[in-house]
């Protein structure tokens, strides 16, 4: 079994290089095709300090086919689905090569966190946020890193956050804007749902022109 032997070698190689900060573990010793990978959020990014868990499924014809990877830890990033953790990265799709390894793939994911590719997004809503309001995006990404990946003494990377999540921080939505609309008689839940769908983060001063009108129009539909 070539595949099993190669995976065993890859696990060993990761163990032999603790400096890389990458971990790989088999979920169940009887099934070498399902692993979990871990790496640190790169420094100088909103993900710094977080620890990220990736679910790895190894296909039968590995290494001729790429491993299937998705984030278990929630990540706010244009190329990662904020809902499912699905990843848009060329080497995990059509640019895969059999000389790549699980370790190399995890390092590529780490560098994807450093250099998002918002023009080829996996999560359109997040990409829109990244392109229209970089500062707001960074804040939200940082907040997610803290709540889901354990950055800044937040929750541990793998466990679900124990304290309630602040929906405003979570989606980078301006609290005051939502309050202003709530006063018109809409529920907070509905306002946030529509703001997420339309990508509107705030209204009033400093917001995009016509954002309020567009939001109200959507709400009244």
């Amino acid at each position: 079994m070539s595949r099993a032997r190669r995976i065993a070698k890859e696990l060993q190689a990761v163990q032999d290089d603790p400096q890389a900060g990458i971990d790989l573990e088999v979920i169940n010793d009887a099934d070498i095709s399902h692993l979990k990978g871990y790496f640190d959020g790169p420094s100088g990014t909103p993900y710094e300090g977080g620890r990220y868990q990736v679910d790895i499924e190894i296909p039968q014809d590995y290494p001729f086919k790429p491993p299937k990877m998705k984030f278990d830890t929630k990540v706010y990033h244009p190329n990662i689905s904020s809902q499912t953790g699905a990843i848009c990265l060329d080497i995990l799709k059509d640019k895969w090569s059999p000389v790549l390894t699980l370790k190399a793939s995890l390092i590529s994911l780490q560098s994807l966190l450093t250099t998002p590719e918002p023009t080829n997004p996996q999560d359109a809503e997040v990409a829109k946020h990244y392109l229209s309001d970089r500062k707001g995006f960074d804040n939200t990404a940082k907040y997610w890193a803290k709540v889901y990946a354990g950055a800044d003494g937040g929750a541990s990377g793998t466990a679900a956050a124990s304290k309630p999540v602040d929906v405003f921080e979570q989606y980078g939505i301006d609290r005051e804007s939502v309050k202003a609309i709530e006063n018109m008689g809409f529920t907070q839940e509905r306002i946030i749902e529509v703001m997420r769908r339309t990508g509107i983060k705030k209204i009033g001063p400093g917001a995009q022109e016509g954002a309020e009108d567009r939001l109200l129009e959507e709400l009244l539909k």
Binding site: M1, S2, R5, R6, K9, E10, P63, P98, V99
Partner: peptide, 14 residues
């Protein structure tokens, strides 16, 4: 061998 990770002086997996 970069594909199977076995030494060149060894054999491919088959």
């Amino acid at each position: 061998c970069g594909i199977c990770r076995v030494a060149f002086d060894g054999t491919c997996p088959t």
